[in-house]
Amino acid sequence: MTAYLIFFFTVVGIYAIAVIGLNLQWGFTGLFNAGVVGFLAIGGYTFAILTGPPRADFFGGFSMPFMVGIAGAIIASMFGALLLGLATLKLREDYLAITTFGIAITIQLAALNSDWLTGGNLGLHGIPRPLQDLFESNAAYGVFYLGLVAVTLGIVYWGVEAIVRSPWGRVLKAIREDEVAAQSLGKNVLRYRLEALMLGAGLMGLSGALYVGFIAYISPFDFMPIVTFQIWTMLILGGSGNNRGAILGALVVWAIWSGSGALVANMLPPVWQARGGALQSVLIGLLLVLTLLYRPRGLIGEETTISRHVTGTTGAGLTKKKETKA
């Protein structure tokens, strides 16, 4: 049971990093990224190719250190976001949704078909886990990796909190609330959006890399579209615009997902297992739609920000009209 809990919280922590990345894009800037899983895949594969063992006749397997793999994963995801953002950020907002959705599908296809780079549908095996030699048992290593994820999550949380409270972060919110107003104050809207998209994508890449480092294996089937839905639901349910909400959402949704999965595995006969997976997805969809309809702010919504120069009751009027956003 302890082993399972350690596994459970490690996965939650890895997801939470991606959810915070999405929060930066959606919660704080209002960018709709429908291809979260694509950025996880870029990060994961970059990490696997950089740190993995050499493969005969194939590209990659550079056996580089863990930290190089992590840095490469973040940079590659950010670069992907840069290309995508340049093409779409100037357009109507739903185009970003459509193109990010497309990029995730394209990346999965590329992963599935580029045997020379990604190992195709067999994936890449034997990716070294950091510092594994120092630990005698798998259980002890599990605790270490949980610690590694927790520390990373802590740094990410602290860093993003600092960023969104900085002048840069305030501009993001200003753009989200009223693009024209921000523009008329001389802010380069496109540039801020691009930076937020890239920063969020970098966190998703980090999350993908940590996941691969954890399971020491990567295949295209780890990056199915359902992952995007899970991460969204985590953010929307937890409360977009709030990083603590993002972490809480990751915890709650992953508990529901794996709980319902265990239920399906134990209750349904083997022939129904595949359809049981569908039941899990229906549950995620319901959770997403019901939250949007009945609790658009999520479990803990965004804190209302009022200038510290405003004191007393006069500030109350400034806090309204925040709730319309999901």
Binding site: E93, S281, I284, L288
Partner: peptide
């Protein structure tokens, strides 16, 4: 609701219907 909320909801509806 904002336009993007509709898109979110349509994704959720799609997930439910497909499954």
């Amino acid at each position: 609701a904002a336009r993007l909320t509709f898109i979110f909801a349509s994704f959720g509806a799609a997930l439910i219907l497909r499954n």
